[in-house]
Amino acid sequence: MHDLIGFQRDLLYVVAGLDDPNGLDIKDELEDYYESEIHHGRLYPNLDTLVEKGLVEKGKQDERTNIYTLTRRGRRELEARREWENEHLKQSPQSFDIPA
């Protein structure tokens, strides 16, 4: 997971949070989060990288549509990342409380 760019980590989180999403489902979710358009030329090569790394599996929904699912390795990587984040947040002297 340490060798992924932030966009690829975000893709992992989105794939993990949706049930067998297709590329457009993932694209829509990321566009909501980033509040900007995600181009196909950015989305699909990064999804393919995650597939090549064994973090995401690509399957067929129909002749034209692929679906993506997190692999066991991908889930383990996300869990390890969450533990790492939680450990570092505990060590931070800064407060993460947002004032009202």
Rank of each mutant, 00 (worst) to 15 (best):
M1T: 12
M1I: 09
H2Y: 05
L4D: 06
L4I: 03
I5K: 12
G6Q: 11
G6L: 13
G6Y: 09
F7P: 04
F7Y: 14
F7K: 08
Q8P: 08
Q8E: 15
R9H: 08
R9A: 11
R9K: 13
R9N: 01
L12M: 12
L12S: 03
L12R: 00
Y13K: 11
V14D: 00
V14E: 02
A16H: 13
A16Y: 11
L18K: 14
L18F: 11
D19Q: 13
D20H: 12
D20V: 10
P21S: 07
P21F: 09
N22H: 15
N22V: 12
G23L: 02
G23N: 04
L24Q: 14
D25M: 00
I26T: 03
I26Q: 01
K27L: 11
K27H: 09
K27Q: 15
D28P: 00
D28M: 09
E29A: 15
L30C: 06
E31V: 02
D32I: 06
Y33N: 03
Y33H: 09
Y33Q: 10
Y34L: 12
Y34T: 02
E35G: 03
S36L: 04
S36C: 09
E37P: 01
H39L: 09
H40V: 06
G41Q: 05
G41C: 01
G41D: 08
R42K: 10
R42I: 10
L43C: 01
Y44V: 12
Y44K: 06
P45M: 10
P45A: 06
D48Y: 06
T49V: 08
L50M: 05
V51T: 06
E52G: 01
E52N: 07
K53M: 03
G54E: 00
L55R: 06
L55A: 07
L55D: 04
V56H: 00
V56Q: 00
E57Q: 10
E57Y: 06
K58G: 01
K58T: 02
K58F: 02
G59V: 07
Q61K: 15
Q61N: 08
E63M: 11
T65C: 05
N66M: 01
I67Q: 07
I67N: 13
Y68N: 07
L70Y: 06
L70M: 12
T71E: 00
T71L: 03
T71P: 04
R73C: 01
R73I: 02
R73V: 03
G74N: 09
G74C: 11
R75H: 14
R76C: 04
E77I: 01
L78A: 04
E79P: 00
A80F: 03
R81K: 07
R81L: 15
R81E: 13
E83T: 12
W84F: 14
W84A: 15
E85K: 12
N86K: 14
N86S: 14
N86P: 01
N86T: 11
N86R: 15
N86G: 12
N86M: 14
N86Y: 09
E87V: 09
H88R: 15
H88D: 07
H88Y: 12
L89W: 11
L89F: 14
K90G: 05
K90F: 08
Q91K: 15
S92K: 05
S92G: 06
S92E: 10
P93N: 08
S95W: 05
F96H: 14
F96T: 13
F96Y: 15
D97V: 11
I98N: 07
P99G: 05
A100T: 04
A100V: 03
